[in-house]
Simulated assay, not measured.
Amino acid sequence: MPETRIPRAALALGIAGLLPFVWGALTMVSDRLSGLTLIWAGPRFVGPYVLLSYGTVILSFMSGVLWGFATRAEARAAATGYALSVIPALWAFVFVGGGVQSAAIYLITGFVGILGIDWVFWRHDLAPPWWMRLRIGLTAVVVACLTVVLVI
């Protein structure tokens, strides 16, 4: 039976990757934290700016992860895997923009949508057995943080 426990390194790095999302959401709900961040780090690390720019980077990064999974497939399945793997990066490039609210909606849609692609790779044993456990938790936090853009 395959190991379904998330490796410590993957979990730790996944959680670390959430920090800019959480930071962006916190700076949107705390004027004090927002002001301090503006002084310490500048405007690109505050509120929707960090959430949307980092979200776009991570959605594109996930294309690379999926491409790696596609390399484990053969023939037609590999071609399908490669095609699926470029969707998140193309989604971010084509749809993320046009204003803060719409960018947040498209990023949320992209992150939720990528779970479907993750599941396809996982179901075909191209992703590790623990992959969906990790991805569902991380995606829940990302979506919650991006939702702050829509409600604040």
Results as ranks from 00 to 15, higher is better:
56 T>N: 09
109 T>Q: 07
22 V>F: 03
128 P>T: 05
79 A>D: 10
119 W>V: 01
104 A>Y: 06
27 T>R: 01
5 R>S: 11
142 V>D: 02
57 V>H: 03
52 L>R: 09
134 L>H: 06
80 T>P: 02
119 W>P: 01
21 F>L: 13
32 R>A: 14
42 G>F: 07
75 A>S: 13
67 W>P: 05
54 Y>I: 00
32 R>Y: 09
73 A>W: 00
48 P>C: 07
42 G>C: 07
65 V>P: 01
133 R>Y: 09
110 G>E: 14
89 A>V: 14
48 P>S: 09
136 I>V: 12
6 I>E: 05
38 L>G: 13
132 M>P: 00
28 M>Y: 00
55 G>C: 04
129 P>L: 08
60 S>R: 06
108 I>N: 07
68 G>H: 09
141 V>K: 01
23 W>G: 08
64 G>M: 05
81 G>A: 10
105 I>C: 10
113 G>W: 05
135 R>M: 03
91 W>H: 06
144 A>F: 03
28 M>I: 03
83 A>L: 14
105 I>K: 11
102 S>D: 10
38 L>I: 10
79 A>G: 12
71 T>M: 12
47 G>A: 08
103 A>F: 12
134 L>K: 02
130 W>V: 02
83 A>K: 10
83 A>Q: 11
78 A>R: 14
39 I>Q: 14
66 L>S: 04
83 A>I: 10
89 A>R: 10
35 G>P: 02
11 L>R: 06
14 G>T: 03
79 A>M: 11
59 L>T: 02
97 G>M: 14
137 G>Q: 04
72 R>F: 04
70 A>Y: 08
97 G>R: 13
14 G>N: 03
126 L>E: 08
101 Q>W: 07
53 S>Y: 13
21 F>V: 09
126 L>T: 10
36 L>G: 11
39 I>P: 02
143 V>Q: 04
87 I>F: 07
140 A>T: 15
99 G>V: 10
95 F>N: 01
89 A>C: 06
21 F>I: 05
16 A>G: 08
100 V>P: 08
49 Y>G: 15
64 G>I: 05
41 A>M: 15
87 I>S: 06
40 W>D: 11
17 G>Y: 00
37 T>M: 08
142 V>T: 14
146 L>H: 04
132 M>F: 00
24 G>M: 02
121 F>A: 04
26 L>G: 05
62 M>N: 12
5 R>D: 07
61 F>Y: 07
64 G>N: 06
144 A>H: 03
87 I>L: 09
58 I>H: 04
12 A>S: 09
137 G>V: 06
77 A>G: 06
31 D>I: 02
112 V>N: 01
143 V>S: 02
146 L>G: 00
23 W>R: 04
120 V>G: 03
37 T>K: 04
61 F>P: 01
15 I>M: 02
89 A>T: 14
34 S>E: 15
76 R>E: 13
67 W>F: 15
9 A>R: 12
128 P>F: 04
61 F>A: 04
73 A>L: 14
82 Y>N: 11
53 S>L: 15
53 S>W: 14
